[in-house]
Design a protein around this nucleic acid. Structure first.
Length: 559
RNA sequence: UGGGGCGUGGCCAAGCGGCAAGGCGCGGGACUUUGGAUCCCGUAUUCGGAGGUUCGAAUCCUCCCGCCCCAACCA
């Protein structure tokens, strides 16, 4: 990684790292690490942490390691490991050859534990989990020492070795650090270092039956890797004294832990437990469901890695609890997509428009601009004929106030084609509009209307050239801005978070796009060809995010 | 309640003793062959509250209030 993108907003982490370099607390290279536990998919909150971990390293010309915190084999799996690596790469970050696992250090950790036992700073305890809870004390009352706390070094060494050999059953013994049962910080009340788990591990298999706890594994892993700055979230602030205690007790390289506030996003949940639950209960169609805040879900939804990184940078880094509005993320997305997505025409809910004075067998082609924000994107030809499809929303009878689209007697521009005037409506027995009739003005070819003020321009697709498509419209998974504040989040699940439209009509150019291609359907929003289901024979698009909708706002105020 | 943190406009967030950046959102206008984009303008006499120090305080001191995290052999 090299130093680039030099001018970024100051934040306390960057400041701290810069100071550490100036004061000589640490020498270059700066080393950070991103330490996911492979027990779920990465989400937008992780994207912020990743941006900080990899970003800081990059800015200071250092490096960032990817280290799987695989200390609990009962919850972890290779599927998650693979997904995590894929998602980080998708975001555009790279750990190069620095891929590590806490399990790489199991033997070293064991040796260090022996060192602490010999120093009289750790002991084997026979208390059960329940007994340990009872003797730990409470927030206001101190804990009590375990009756096994004063075993001799020899006995502890013997017992610990036999724990490793598998002589004891799960839960019957632990190795604990001997710190202070009276500490006001619960983490210092003789924390467990090892527990017995006769479970095979996805990497070490059955080599071990004792597994280190997070606190015992983390700091030491950082130390082994010569990590200078161990950046983590606020909930680990209480763990820092323990982090420091282990490192000092061992007398090894001592990284600095710095904590920042994790990201919270409105209208969604971020805990892996809750996300897992959504998947397992079928509220969504898997971890990569486009409604999920997972990176896999956002990707399938059509988000760009650039937008997510920009968002992570813009929300900043502080220690204040926060709840960022979804609208902010969407603004970053639109900003990126507006510059890069090519425009196409698609009609989601088709309404037939018949041009009475247009020759039956005539077909014209009009030049359409692919991206007004990017001339290099060029143009394309769009076929036009007598019978077209327009959006049902673009015709109203009668027209409400301030409505600039089609209605009986009104004129509107068909994007890139002609000005047309509505002459009539066809209805079925129930009174439902089945088709709209209009005449076109041959003098306005291409859509030019010199001397005339045409307020509305609508999109269309030639019926005989249109292709069918399925379009999936998404809304927030939850109706409540803060589903975490509700007792039962499933009670605020949005029942209309997914709407599948099967009869959409799209211009033929859309039939050629590859999965994951992002486009703007003019006047509707940004869409992406579905990663899994889109094929040349079956077009499937996901709505990534709608366009800013000024008319929608006006309409809502009117009603 | 003991400990650890945090409180700047609706949401993020600069600011670190010299007289409240910026972004998102919102409101208004210009422009427009996307009611998109773009461009203007507006949006905290005030920084959780109350005292105090100072010529001067969001920034320093004191007290108070509120919110978050911690009592897994999870991370």
């Amino acid at each position: 990684m090299s130093e680039q993108e030099p001018t970024r907003a100051a934040n306390f982490v960057r400041t701290a790292v810069a100071e550490d370099l100036e004061t000589g607390r640490f020498q270059r290279p700066i080393v950070t690490r991103f330490p996911p536990e492979p027990n779920g998919y990465l989400h937008i909150g992780h994207a912020k942490a990743i941006a900080i971990d990899f970003g800081i390293a990059q800015e200071f010309g250092g490096r960032c390691h990817l280290r799987f915190d695989d200390t609990n084999p009962t919850k972890e799996s290779q599927e998650y490991v693979d997904a995590i690596m894929r998602d980080i790469h998708w975001l555009g970050w790279d750990w190069a050859e620095h891929l590590y696992h806490a399990s790489d250090y199991f033997e070293q950790l064991y040796q260090w534990a022996v060192q602490l036992i010999k120093a009289g700073k750790a002991y084997v305890d026979d208390l059960t989990a329940d007994e340990m809870r009872e003797t730990r004390g409470t927030l206001t009352e101190p804990g009590r020492e375990s009756p096994y706390r004063h075993r001799s070094v020899e006995e502890n060494l013997d017992l610990f070795e036999r724990m490793r050999r598998g002589e004891f059953d799960d839960g019957t013994k632990t190795l604990r650090a001997k710190i202070d049962m009276n500490s006001a910080n619960l983490n210092l009340r003789d924390p467990v270092m090892y527990r017995i788990r006769k479970t095979s591990h996805q990497r070490t298999g059955d080599t071990w039956c004792i597994y280190p706890m997070y606190d015992w594994a983390h700091g030491q892993s950082d130390s082994v890797e010569r990590v200078t700055h161990s950046l983590c979230s606020l909930e680990y602030e209480d763990h820092r004294p323990l982090y420091d205690w282990y490192l000092d007790a061992l007398g090894i390289f001592h990284p600095r832990q710095i904590e920042f506030a994790r990201l919270n996003l409105s209208h969604t949940v971020m805990s892996k437990r809750k996300l897992l639950s959504l998947v397992e209960h079928g509220h969504v169609r898997g971890w990569d469901d486009p409604r999920m805040p997972t990176l896999a879900g956002l990707r399938r939804r059509g988000y760009t890695p650039e937008a997510i990184r920009d968002f992570a940078e813009r929300v900043g880094v502080t220690k204040a609890a926060n709840m960022v509005e979804l609208a902010y993320l969407e603004a970053c997305l639109r900003e990126d997509l507006n510059k890069r997505a090519e425009r196409r025409m698609a009609v989601l809910r088709p309404l037939t428009l018949i041009l009475e004075n247009y020759p039956d067998d005539q077909v014209e082609e009009f030049e359409a601009i692919n991206n007004p924000e990017d001339p290099s994107a060029g143009t394309r030809k769009v076929p036009f004929s007598r019978i077209l499809y327009i959006e049902q929303d673009d015709f109203r009878d009668p027209a409400p106030p301030k409505y600039y689209r089609l209605s009986p007697g009104a004129e509107v521009r068909l994007r890139y084609a002609y000005i047309v005037k509505c002459t009539g409506v066809e209805r079925d027995a129930a009174g439902t509009v089945t088709a709209v009739r209009a005449t076109y003005d041959p003098a306005t070819r291409g859509g030019d209307a010199p001397g005339r003020k045409i307020r509305g321009t609508i999109h269309w697709v030639s019926a005989q050239h249109a292709m069918d498509a399925e379009v999936r419209l998404y809304d927030t998974l939850f109706t409540a801005p803060k589903p975490d504040d509700v007792d039962d989040p499933t009670s605020v699940l949005n029942s209309t978070s997914l709407e599948v439209i099967s009869g959409a009509k799209v211009e033929r150019a859309l039939g050629l796009v590859a999965p994951e291609t992002r486009v703007q359907f003019e006047r509707l929003g940004y869409f992406v060809a579905d990663w899994r289901d889109h094929t040349p024979d079956r077009l499937v698009f996901n709505r990534t995010v709608g366009l800013r909708d000024t008319w929608g706002k006006i309409e809502r105020t009117l009603s």
